[in-house]
Structure formats: structure tokens, C-alpha cells
Design a protein around this nucleic acid. Sequence first.
DNA 1: ATCAAAATCACCCTAAAGTATGACTTTAAA
DNA 2: TTTAAAGTCATACTTTAGGGTGATTTTGAT
Lengths: 157, 157
Amino acid sequence: MIPTFITRNKQIILYGIALAFLIILLKWLELRFIIMDRQMDIYVGLIAVVFTGLGIWLALKLRKPKIHTVIVEKEVFTTNNQDFIVNENELRKLNLSKRELEVLQLMAGGLSNQEIADKLFVSLNTVKTHSAQIFEKMEVKRRTQAVEMAKRLSIIP
Amino acid sequence: MIPTFITRNKQIILYGIALAFLIILLKWLELRFIIMDRQMDIYVGLIAVVFTGLGIWLALKLRKPKIHTVIVEKEVFTTNNQDFIVNENELRKLNLSKRELEVLQLMAGGLSNQEIADKLFVSLNTVKTHSAQIFEKMEVKRRTQAVEMAKRLSIIP
DNA sequence: ATCAAAATCACCCTAAAGTATGACTTTAAA
DNA sequence: TTTAAAGTCATACTTTAGGGTGATTTTGAT
């Protein structure tokens, strides 16, 4: 990221200027007070304090902020769940064949066995066989139960 | 928070110890090299570097991390949509009686007419009469269609 | 008190759904 | 290529669902 780079460079430039200014300040102080043995402690202490402050400022300015990301999961309830996602896991568990799933989907649409047969271009008996297989695999007794279960398991919308 | 307090105090104590150690180091250096005007710069520079480092370390240790809260909207697929809201509007339109709605709800649960009759303590014929009324009012032919429609209209979960 | 709607139940009949079994073909995998 | 699963269809039978009609009782509103 280019803006981040510029920002960081600016900081370094600022630090350089500050450092230069501090050196000048030190030289000035050196000339002002004739440094004696006794005054040495105060001078060194001052330098220590100033540079500690500089270090703190530096660290605060240059360091990338520690971003402690708190992810808050917010539940979004979709009233009209048009973007229905099939629960592939449950679907696999049921072990329904392609044709059986088709029949189940049409069942859920409220179609009769005859209507399903017409739609799939097969005989009524075939649909009955499929539905019998579906009920066995889903461990239900009626088509209404099969549909109810399929919806609950998110196999059909 | 008490642990946070202790932690912060520990840091201050450590800083104090470090500071004391540095002062001792400075005194030792002071005695070691007879500080001359020329050596002064080096000495001061060393102090500046050390205390800048100390300041940086201090800031890094003591500063509270910036907490960046990211709210992520996550779609939650509730298998048991307990917070189901009945579409009173559609329900009124259908003009179903109390009993008819009960039968419809049990139908949606995949129950047979006989099972519904047992659950409501009425005869099978009564359930048939009710269901016939339901189909007429909903303008459907089968119970599967009635259930499908009722779910679509948010009359039942 | 009256009246209509709701709720109850019965009988008969048909349609649809579901069960059981067997057989044949197609398809995909070992 | 063999083999199992899937898909197809049929026949016979049982169960459940649904349609039509009529009747009685309960309930709530005017």
C-alpha cells in the first residue's frame, strides 16, 4: 500500500528532523552550561528523560496498531430465503438416487403420483416404486412426512 | 481488573529496576572514562540511544492494544426456526376456523387423518369433514398442496 | 331467544396412495 | 467384462384420502 509507505517515510523524516533538533539543543546546552562534574548528573538525566520521551513517541507513532479484531457474529434472518442452500450432508446420509430426489421434489410441490408420472414421462407404477423407496430410505410412512422431513433437513426449499 | 493492575505495576517496577541499573552503568562509565570534551559527544549519544530504546520498550509494553471491532454479518440457518411469525393477513384471508387450522397444522406435521382424529379426540369422519373444508377454502385438491401453500403463505412454520 | 356458523359424526362411494413381489433394461463402477 | 445399483414397469392388494350428502349439537353474536 502506497499511502502507508508515505506515512511511514514521513515519520522517519520527522524523526530525523527531531533528532537533528535535539543534537542542536544538546550542543547549545553544552555551550551554555560549562559542564562540571556535579552538573553532569543533571545533564545526563535530562538527556535520558528527553530520549526516553522520544522513544515513547517514536514507538507510538511508528508502530502498527495492534488490531485486536473482535468478530461479532450477527444473525441475519432471511424472511424469504430465496438463496436456499441444499444440505448436502443430510442429503448424502439419506442415500437417495437422482430419480428418487426428483420424485421427492415434485412430491413437495404437492403433486400427485399421476402428475409426477406425467411430468417425468414414466408410468404411475414407477413413481409408486420410487416413492416406496423414498419412504423406506427416509424411514417415514407417508409422503407428507417425507416432505416435512426433507424441508426440516434442508434438502428441499 | 486486578490482574491488569498487577501486570502494570510489574512493568513499572521493572522500569524502575532498569532505570536504576542504567544509572549505575552511567556512573561506572563516568568513572571509567574521564569524560573530556571530545568524548562527551559519544557518551551523550550512547545515553540517548539507550534511553530511546528504553522509551520504545516502555511504550510497546505499556500501551493498550487498539481494539478494532469488526462486525461480521453472518447468515445463520436456523434448522428450527423457532421465531416463526404467522402471517395473520393471509390467515384471515383464508377464513379458516380454529379447528380447521388445528387440523391443517397437524396435516403439515405429516399426520394421517386417523392420527389427527386420535390427537383431537374426534372421529375420523370429523377430520375428513374439516379437511374437505380446508381444501375448499384454500382452493386446493390435496393435503400436500394445502401444506405447501400454508408454508408458502407463512401460516405454518 | 333466535339464528348462523362452527363443530361434530355417519354412510357411501371413488380416487389416490401405499405395500409386496417379480421381472426386465440401463448404467456406472470394480 | 462382470456385477451391483438404478431405473423401469406390471399385477394384485390394502389402506388412506377425498367427495357428496345429510344430520345433530354447540357456540357466539344480534
